[in-house]
Simulated assay, not measured.
Amino acid sequence: MLQSHIHQAPYEFFYLRRISMISGNRGNRRENVAVGKTASQSSYVDTSISANNAVDDNTTQLSCILTATNQSYTWWEVDLGEQYFIHEVVIHFRTGWTWRRNGIQVYTSISPQQSNNGQPCGEQISGNMDGSGIPDVPTRTCNVMGRYVTLYQATYNRGTCGDYNCDGTTAMDFCEVLVMACTPNVKYGANCDMNCIQRKCASSSASCDVQTGNCGNGGCRPGYQGLDCTQACASGVKYGSNCIKPCDDRHCAPSGSYRSTCPAATGKCYWGCDPGWKEDDCTQACESGVKYGSNCMKSCDARHCAPSGSDKSTCPAATGKCEWGCTPGWKGDDCTQGTNLLSG
């Protein structure tokens, strides 16, 4: 009888940790997000055999599913509960009933019970009608966002069991379906081996694209670049948010024969700016006619320039030099030094 071939073994005895067996280090790679989720199927050969048997984390031959025979098509589906970036689907077939493998197609979808209208994951599982040439544990690559994973079968199969023919029709039976995916906002990348928390996004609340780790419109913290903001600026070449500012565009004052380094985050000039420039990275020119000198600390209005007719001297940002000299009692290129002359 069928029940002697398929039954649900005691969970405590057959519970297996397939995540670690399939994925290597669980903390660094893909996770089977189907375990314990709700499954359904189009038909049952026996309603006591639950569709959830295929997501109970038990890959032995003692906890499997079986759809009804003599149907025009059959399907099995698991609801992951939320959308994931699904990398691949791994199927553990029953090893003694190979003629129920040929023709199965794996689909993903955002809406439930899409039958064969979802997004196909790779090619159809195909081989001979008796299932020869089809592995016991095939894998299909998806690389798509989805909430539902569906296995669909509409191929009429027949196999040979000893001295009599075994009619597989469109029935499916398998023991476990693993849906390998990245956990949203925790891991990302082709192998789910990148940690969202290790990105250097400008916003601490930035979303984490499961494929690229993209930080979104907020961009990167100063000193980092790339979609996922994990690449540091090239030392001494670029700096700032997304590394878009060239170090050579700064106007740093030297200290003797030494030029300031270029910190990747700020580009700060450690010994101040050349005359006529200001801000930490010395890239902002003094406001014309208002300030001048190193770090734009001197006021043009504080000079005592001699006029030329009705014209007042301009105020060069670097020096503040008075073009026509100084008014009586003042000296220096910028006419800010008193001469201390005694009057009459």
Rank of each mutant, 00 (worst) to 15 (best):
E88R: 14
A154C: 01
I86A: 02
I134R: 01
I104T: 13
G329P: 05
Y156V: 15
D301P: 04
Q198C: 00
Q3E: 13
G127V: 00
R147C: 14
N28M: 08
Y148K: 14
T95D: 06
S241P: 12
T183R: 11
E323D: 11
C208Y: 03
D79Q: 03
R30W: 14
N52R: 10
A202R: 05
G329L: 09
S308I: 05
C243T: 00
W277R: 08
G122M: 08
N58M: 09
G36H: 09
T150F: 14
T150D: 10
N157I: 08
V33N: 06
D311V: 11
G325T: 07
E31R: 12
M180S: 03
N70D: 07
S288L: 04
L341G: 03
Q71D: 12
A202T: 00
S313H: 02
A306M: 08
K312E: 01
V149N: 13
S241M: 11
V35P: 04
Y11D: 10
S343Y: 07
C121Y: 06
M172G: 10
G216N: 04
S310A: 08
Y258L: 11
P184G: 01
G309N: 02
A206L: 00
E31C: 13
Y270K: 11
G81L: 14
K245Y: 15
C326D: 11
C305L: 05
T170F: 09
G133L: 08
K187W: 02
V237E: 05
G344M: 15
S63H: 10
S40D: 14
Y84G: 09
H304D: 01
